Simulated assay, not measured.
Amino acid sequence: MSKTSSVIRWLVGRRCTALRPHGSRIHDYDEWLDRFETALRGLPDRQRQHSPLPLLHAFARPEKPLSGSALPADQFRAGVRAAALNKENDIPHLSQDLITKYVADLRSQRLL
């Protein structure tokens, strides 16, 4: 299972139903993009202002998956290691707990 699939499962588990309208997974990218844009445009003004709507052009075509990062992360990783942010002393990985925290934070700001 891909990392993206795991994150989507975690979000759906936190009842972020906007990700899966009508309870089904959307396999066609163009259909997904159309539904995503429609959902964003239908948000109340405050939520729409904090949405990725102005950046939607970046989603016009799906990116090809790649292994690793599209950007060199050596400097970033060095900064994270120097700051000793976690016990691994490395860039934190996405976890279910972190996604759950993000959902709770977004809900507390009434952005979800």
Rank of each mutant, 00 (worst) to 15 (best):
L98R: 11
A70W: 03
T100D: 10
R46P: 02
P62S: 10
Y29V: 01
G79E: 11
P54I: 05
V7T: 10
K3R: 13
A83D: 07
E31I: 14
P44I: 02
R46Q: 11
L71F: 14
D74T: 13
L40W: 02
E31K: 13
A84T: 06
D34G: 10
G42Y: 02
Q75Y: 09
D30R: 15
L40G: 01
K87I: 10
N89H: 07
T38M: 08
D34N: 10
E37Q: 13
P44A: 11
R81Y: 00
N89L: 08
L111C: 04
M1Q: 12
D30T: 12
H50F: 09
G68W: 04
D30L: 11
V80P: 03
N89F: 01
I26N: 02
T38K: 14
E37I: 11
A58I: 07
R61T: 15
S24H: 14
I8S: 06
L55E: 13
R46I: 06
E31N: 08
A70K: 12
L43G: 01
D105N: 11
Q109C: 09
S51K: 04
A60F: 02
R35N: 09
Y29M: 03
D97Y: 00
R61E: 15
H93M: 05
A70V: 10
H50Y: 07
H27I: 07
R25N: 08
G13P: 05
A18N: 11
Q96Y: 00
P92R: 01
M1L: 12
N86A: 03
C16V: 15
S24M: 12
D30P: 01
T4L: 14
P21K: 04
S95C: 01
S69E: 09
L33D: 00
D28L: 09
P62D: 06
P72T: 12
L55T: 06
A78T: 11
S6I: 04
L112P: 01
R9I: 04
L85R: 04
L98P: 00
A84K: 15
L94D: 00
K101R: 13
L43H: 03
C16T: 06
P52H: 05
P54Y: 05
A83G: 02
S5R: 15
A18C: 12
T4C: 10
L112N: 04
M1K: 11
G13E: 05
H22Y: 12
A104F: 04
T100M: 01
T4K: 14
T17L: 14
L19D: 04
R107V: 07
E37F: 00
P92A: 04
P54H: 06
F59Y: 15
H50N: 14
A39D: 11
A73L: 15
G13L: 00
A84R: 15
N86G: 03
E63Q: 15
C16Q: 08
F76G: 09
L111W: 05
H57C: 11
G68Q: 06
P92C: 05
I91T: 06
Y102G: 02
A58Y: 13
D28C: 12
S67L: 11
A78W: 04
Q109R: 14
S6N: 11
R20W: 08
R25M: 07
T100N: 09
E37R: 13
R81P: 00
R61H: 15
I26A: 01
T17V: 12
H27D: 15
T100L: 01
R77K: 13
A39Y: 09
W32P: 00
L43E: 08
A73N: 12
L112D: 09
K101D: 08
S95W: 00
